[in-house]
Design a protein around this nucleic acid. Sequence first.
DNA 1: TCTAAAGAGGACTGATTTAGTCCTATTGGT
DNA 2: ACCAATAGGACTAAATCAGTCCTCTTTAGA
Lengths: 150, 150
Amino acid sequence: MIRLSKLADYAVVMLSYMAAREGEVYTTARLAERTAVPEPTAAKILKLLARSALLASQRGSNGGYGLARPAADITVAEIIVAVDGPIALTACVQGSSDHCGVEQLCSMRGNWNKVNRAIRDALEDITLADMAVPFGVVPAIAARQEQGLA
Amino acid sequence: MIRLSKLADYAVVMLSYMAAREGEVYTTARLAERTAVPEPTAAKILKLLARSALLASQRGSNGGYGLARPAADITVAEIIVAVDGPIALTACVQGSSDHCGVEQLCSMRGNWNKVNRAIRDALEDITLADMAVPFGVVPAIAARQEQGLA
DNA sequence: TCTAAAGAGGACTGATTTAGTCCTATTGGT
DNA sequence: ACCAATAGGACTAAATCAGTCCTCTTTAGA
């Protein structure tokens, strides 16, 4: 099974919560409480998101976090990258120096890039706004499915 | 980072090797040697692939494995499923009974299904034949390896 | 200017998953 | 009957990840 880390899952949950009212500032404690994510873990995730400039942070008292951009401009791909690092399926992706033992096969392995690319594209097409829509129709996705692309 | 297990990676490497000459029968020992995958691990993977009917197996002496179908009919998605199980990003996918604590959020979480679907579709579009033909040179490589130059 | 509230950053630990190994049973050809 | 090969599963070791904690910096407000 392809695994997405729980942290990335939490991240999307928290960001979606914040997307409900853009422009508002949320403290770690409040977000943790409302999303049922343990506070220290929530803090860790929020820091990561702030570092990647998906969240704007305000230090000091009355500080907190807010979305740095409109939810429709934040893709799921970005969130995953911020929390888990680059989206790629195998280690043998870019000409990383560790030789794969069987050099000829490595060239074949390079085709994972095609796969990675396909997945990245899929994730880049889904925005936080899409995720935040409860259940019903997610317009962007529905449109692509209409075209048989999704 | 989204992670694909090493086993699935190995599986694709081994299957690609076999795709070079469809119809041929390969023993575990030979495949392990040629793909530089440790033999016990290779054996484990081959068993999994055979159980999922991607490989046809022949027991007894002169036995071994062969592709059960043409390489162009085997998708990367199938290989991953055979080795790693269902392709899905989070645990909270299907109405699994473990309540997510925050019910309203859970409905939002259901949108991961859209993401999963997009990824699955991407993987189903890539066949073993696509992976096995990097730059159109695979037969030459296979030939060299047959001569023990691998 | 002092204090308290908040985030920043990083180190550490425990738990979970995954990779890898090994043993035994079964099958089939010679 | 014997040898070569897969089938299946149990077990161990290693890598990864989630989660916690501690200390430092920033800032508003009394």
